[in-house]
């Protein structure tokens, strides 16, 4: 039997309106908790992108002397090829290296002026099989190989920053989960009150032989709508916070942080995830309520 769409829509809307204070509480809790979830996800992606940009996914950089000869460069290239810990390497010549330096030093124009393509050291950017081997490998290049200026691995500060954001994320996610559980309970309670408010109708429906699903669907849908509305509010908050961060970074020209603003694709994925979690919370809360308090 088809459940008439019009009937279900009408019933759900009436229920929500009759129970609006309860519904509002549930929706706002979902919104707050999902904003936290969304923020935590965005933070993670932003930090990963920024760190990736800073270190360019490179765990070892071998800078050559600006005056290094072609022979010396070829020599280093073959040493790299013979080092088993290094999985992949790219060489940036003077022009490429200069471009890269301009990006990294964008915040200090005086440093850029001091550079020319000819004076910028060329560099091998390498990926290691295991980043923890960076110290050992860089030692072999720092040990007086002709033409090598310096071999470096990502600084300690980046690793500390990664750890701090990891801890921050865990804290945000724990708070978000607690709030999600409480919003689930709030939705459950809202549906329970809706069932209680409509016990006469439910009684009549059972007597005249309405099917179980017919009786349940409006209540389930009510929970789903609450979850969805909360999630949409959260999605707007997440979007605004991302725009806000982007605006601040541009306004204060902190271009080193340029990658912390996420591209549209990542943002859309995060928003979809937020909405999905909202739907799941709404449906879960109302299913539990319907199963426990609506004996059909």
């Amino acid at each position: 039997m088809a459940v008439s769409f019009e009937y279900v829509a009408k019933e759900t809307a009436t229920n929500l309106w009759r129970n609006r204070m309860m519904a509002l509480a549930a929706i706002l809790t979902v919104a707050v908790s999902l904003s936290l979830v969304g923020t935590a996800l965005l933070l993670r992606q932003a930090v990963n992108r920024q760190i990736g940009q800073w270190s360019n996914n490179v765990s070892l950089q071998v800078f050559m002397d600006a005056s290094a000869s072609t022979g010396q460069i070829a020599n280093v290239r073959s040493t790299i090829a013979q080092t088993p810990q290094i999985t992949h390497c790219t060489y940036l010549d003077h022009a490429q290296s200069y471009e890269q330096a301009k990006k990294l030093l964008a915040s200090s124009p005086t440093a850029i002026e001091a550079l020319t393509p000819a004076t910028t050291p060329t560099v091998f950017r390498c990926q290691l099989r295991n980043p923890s081997e960076a110290a050992t490998v860089s030692a072999t290049f720092n040990g007086g190989v002709p033409g090598v200026y310096q071999a470096t691995s990502p600084s300690q500060s980046i690793r500390v920053m990664q750890q701090v954001t990891n801890v921050l994320q865990v804290i945000l996610l724990v708070i978000a989960i607690v709030l999600l559980v409480s919003s689930l309970v709030l939705i459950l309670n809202a549906i329970r009150m809706a069932i209680f408010a409509r016990r006469r109708e439910v009684g009549v429906m059972k007597l005249v032989g309405a099917t179980n699903w017919f009786i349940r669907v409006p209540f389930m849908l009510e929970g789903l709508v609450q979850g969805l509305l909360g999630a949409l509010v959260a999605a707007v908050i997440v979007l605004l916070s991302n725009l806000g961060v982007g605006y601040l970074i541009r306004h204060y020209k902190v271009s080193v942080l340029g990658s912390a603003v996420l591209p549209a694709h990542d943002l859309v994925v995060t928003e979809l995830l937020v909405v999905l979690i909202g739907l799941v919370v709404g449906v879960a809360g109302s299913s539990v309520a319907v199963r426990r308090f609506l004996d059909v």
Binding site: M1, A2, V3, S4, Y7, E201, V204, M205, V208, G209, A210, T211, F214, I215
Partner: peptide, 8 residues
């Protein structure tokens, strides 16, 4: 009408 509505 309710009695008929709810049985579709």
């Amino acid at each position: 009408a309710f009695a008929l509505e709810v049985i579709g």
